[in-house]
Design a binder for these strands. Structure first.
Lengths: 146, 146
DNA sequence: AGTGCCGGTCTCAAAAAGAGACCAGCACTA
DNA sequence: TAGTGCTGGTCTCTTTTTGAGACCGGCACT
């Protein structure tokens, strides 16, 4: 079993075969996931899943996003077919963003991750603290910080 | 109903109240999701969900990742408690990465999104094509490209 | 001796993101 | 009538993140 670690002869062929089986590079899933992996995409999707919002509403709802990224992320989400952009010819022309059917469908799958995060953020935070602590211990070799 | 568009008096207070309700900025879910929203995080999680891999194996499995990002992303995932890093004292010291229980748990939720992507990438691609086509039509006003 | 693989780190260039000014048009205020 | 604020964006500049690739020490095989 452990021979795979020692015996390195012509491993590349083996990996190529495995890659074809696991097709991580080719598969279109990557293409879809990359669209959602942006820093703000998931957040905006979560917001729009609640209800439709206008541009300025979203900006206020997520204070630490810049207009530039808000515009761009919304545009990307619209391009991927997740959100719908409607311009209302009101006095100050207002723009409303809402989820499409595709967007709602996608969010239905994404929601699981959100729920998991809600339930397990303590564990993640604990893991982070443990990792950082161990790192500090390794580097500084001191259990007690100043 | 539409008065919300016209009547703009002191809307900020209203939004603040809404923000408190929807708590999109504060909630720790963001903190967790951001860790997964990296370009490579989800891909590496998917790979490690199959089976444990060594550093070089992952590099070959995902050809278009740089060592730097591979190291960094794996380190981030390890810090968040999703993956476990084991160093084997073999002759060329080898390092194996595997999913922790927390990682497997998280991937169980993430998997839904992966499955959705697999099923709906056609729709997403179609939406993209439609969006790009409409954009070209708007700008170039020409239906037939050269 | 020379070469290659091991898992990383280091540096440098390019790309992406953040901060903030600026735009045109209309309503309300002074 | 001038001034102010709000609308949804775009433009520029700076900072952060990413990508590409050189480099490291140590051992095995040639």
């Amino acid at each position: 079993m452990d021979s795979r670690i020692v015996n390195l002869k012509s491993k590349l062929d083996v990996y190529k075969a495995m890659t074809d089986g696991g097709n991580l590079s080719d598969c279109p899933v990557r293409d879809v996931i990359q669209g959602l992996s942006g820093k703000w995409s998931s957040l905006l999707m979560a917001a729009l899943a609640e209800q439709p919002y206008r541009f300025g509403e979203l900006r206020r709802l997520v204070p630490d996003i810049s207009q530039r990224m808000l515009t761009q992320t919304l545009c990307d989400l619209q391009r991927d077919g997740y959100v719908c952009r409607e311009v209302f010819p009101t006095k100050p022309p207002s723009v409303e963003y809402s989820l499409t059917d595709l967007g709602r469908s996608m969010f239905g799958a994404f929601r699981h991750l959100l729920e998991w995060a809600e339930l397990n953020h303590d564990a993640v935070r604990a893991a982070r603290a443990g990792f950082d602590g161990a790192l500090a211990g390794t580097v500084g070799k001191a259990g007690t910080a100043a």
